[in-house]
């Protein structure tokens, strides 16, 4: 693992992140935007967990005879972040449902048109 080769993991994660980001800013459909946000979130989780990994290490559960463990701190952060991400996604979806009831559409462009008419 020399030169830039050791970074490829982060690069793929960045590509994933940008995929989600693209869905958020390029797609007018609100559900699609939330799915894009979800992809973005998950790739951030992967980035953190990649950083926690130590070559040759094992899961951070103490056992006799094992000397090298992965870093438990990012695991803790991400573990709680995943559950929080679901809670916030649910909040977003609830907003989408309300918008659908109020505007009759979940397409951002149509919503803007309706807003301008008012």
């Amino acid at each position: 693992m020399s030169g830039l080769l050791g970074l490829y993991n982060y690069w793929i994660v960045i590509i994933l992140m940008m995929t989600g980001f693209y869905a958020v800013i390029a797609r007018p459909n609100l559900i699609k935007q939330i799915i894009g946000l979800f992809i973005f979130q998950t790739s951030v989780f992967i980035l953190f967990i990649s950083m926690a990994n130590i070559e040759g290490g094992t899961a951070p559960i103490i056992k006799e005879g094992i000397r090298l463990y992965s870093n438990p701190l990012p695991h803790v952060l991400i573990l709680t972040a995943i559950v929080v991400s679901l809670a916030t996604t649910a909040l977003g979806l609830a907003l989408v449902v309300r918008i659908k009831e109020a505007y009759g559409t979940i397409n951002e462009d149509n919503i803007h048109v309706q807003d301008e008419e008012d």
Partner: peptide, 23 residues
Amino acid sequence: VLDAVDVALTEAAIGAGISTILL
């Protein structure tokens, strides 16, 4: 694979389970 078993358990239950149902 990256040795984060606790995180994997959470992600499998949340991502593949509940968030799909909510969507």
